[in-house]
């Protein structure tokens, strides 16, 4: 059962990576990268059950936290060209 789930997630990963390679805009790639992150977390959880080592779940949790921060950082960088950009600075004269 877990092998089936792992195979399905791997198929989905291939599709998501294809989208990330094809683009065409940077936002398609970010969306695909975020999907790859989600699928990787699910794969880590399934893999933990497959090998009977639940420690993989901790890696999955950490990866979930890194995934959102990474995505938001990339989006902020492409929107403002600067990770230290502060919206409040815009309002000051």
């Amino acid at each position: 059962m877990f092998a089936t789930a792992a195979a399905a997630i791997l198929v989905a990963l291939v599709l998501a990576v294809t989208r990330a390679v094809k683009g065409p805009t940077v936002f398609d790639r970010v969306l695909a990268a975020n999907s790859v992150g989600t699928l990787a977390i699910l794969l880590l959880a399934v893999f933990g059950f497959l090998t009977r080592r639940p420690e993989f779940l901790d890696i999955g949790l950490t990866y979930a936290l890194l995934n959102i921060i990474g995505t938001l950082a990339v989006l902020k960088f492409f929107r403002h060209g600067d990770l230290a950009y502060d919206v409040d600075e815009e309002r000051k004269p």
Binding site: T4, I9, R19, L31, S35
Partner: peptide, 26 residues
């Protein structure tokens, strides 16, 4: 539950490939 989840996971990724532009892919 796991088989249904695997099915919807693949459907989501398939939609990511098939949809014509960014907003529909989301």
């Amino acid at each position: 539950l796991i088989l249904a989840g695997a099915f919807f996971t693949i459907v989501g990724a398939l939609g990511l490939m098939r949809m014509p532009e960014l907003f529909t892919r989301m």
